[in-house]
Structure formats: structure tokens, C-alpha cells
């Protein structure tokens, strides 16, 4: 079975909401979170999706 979509990284400002089994980037505020997400999106060639205001995931489609 081929997995077509998978989470490459998670970026969060809330350490309590950290998912397991994926690279996590902790940020101090939303501004930093947006900056890191923008860079990671370009580096990983994935799409940044917002799950909540405190949690972004980069997904390979």
C-alpha cells in the first residue's frame, strides 16, 4: 500500500498539544510560528495547514 499523504513536521506554540511520531518545532509566539512554517514549507516541499491557531502541520501531498 502506498501512502500518498503524510505529515512532515508540526509547528506549535503550545507544548501541551505536541503530536507524537513527527518532527516538532516549538515556537514562542505566532509570528515565529509563521516564519518557521514558511521556511519549512519551502524546504520540505509540503503544504502548511492550520489545525488550530496554535498548531500548524506541513503535509506532503
Amino acid at each position: 500500500m502506498d501512502i500518498e499523504k503524510f505529515i512532515l513536521a508540526a509547528i506549535t506554540t503550545n507544548p501541551k498539544k505536541v503530536p507524537c511520531g513527527v518532527a516538532v518545532f516549538h515556537c514562542d509566539n505566532k509570528e515565529e510560528m509563521e516564519k518557521i512554517t514558511t521556511n519549512l514549507e519551502a524546504i520540505l516541499d509540503g503544504i502548511a495547514h492550520s489545525l488550530t491557531d496554535e498548531l500548524y502541520v506541513i503535509v506532503k501531498h
Binding site: I47, A48, H49
Partner: peptide, 9 residues
């Protein structure tokens, strides 16, 4: 259509 997280995007 889709979820786009970044405000810039």
C-alpha cells in the same frame, strides 16, 4: 477547496 495555513500564502 483546501486548507491554507499561512497568512502570507
Amino acid at each position: 477547496i483546501m486548507n491554507i495555513g499561512l497568512a502570507e500564502r
